[in-house]
């Protein structure tokens, strides 16, 4: 069963390392709230397999001045797509 992992705290939290221990091929990762600080350099997502889609909430990027600075691998999504993603994957695992 596929999972959408949401990460909602900044890289200092170390959440990405714990999250990646559970991530399976085909899972997605969505960065929200302070989690969006993972999306800009320095590259913190080098360990994430190409099998895993990466998303970030556009509103949270905008608010923090990061929208133009994010890595190309990351797809910005709005709230509507956020909701769709939670349905597209079999379950959501939230990291906070």
């Amino acid at each position: 069963m596929s999972a959408l992992h949401t990460i909602s705290a900044s890289p200092t939290s170390g959440l990405i390392n714990s999250c990646l221990r559970l991530v399976c091929p085909g899972d997605g990762i969505l960065f929200i709230q302070d989690g969006v600080y993972h999306c800009c350099p320095p590259d913190l997502l080098g360990d994430v397999s190409q099998d895993n889609a990466l998303f970030a909430l556009r509103e949270d990027l905008l608010a923090r001045g990061l929208l133009g600075k994010i890595s190309e691998r990351i797809t910005p999504v709005g709230f509507g797509r956020f909701v769709e993603l939670t349905v597209d994957y079999d379950k959501v695992i939230s990291w906070s």
Binding site: M1, A3, R21, L22, C24, K91, S96
Partner: peptide
């Protein structure tokens, strides 16, 4: 181990993580 943890999460219907 790491693989067992990953499989546990993968096969669960619901994962509550806090």
């Amino acid at each position: 181990n790491v693989e067992q943890v990953r499989q546990l999460a993968a096969r669960s219907d619901v994962v509550i993580n806090l």
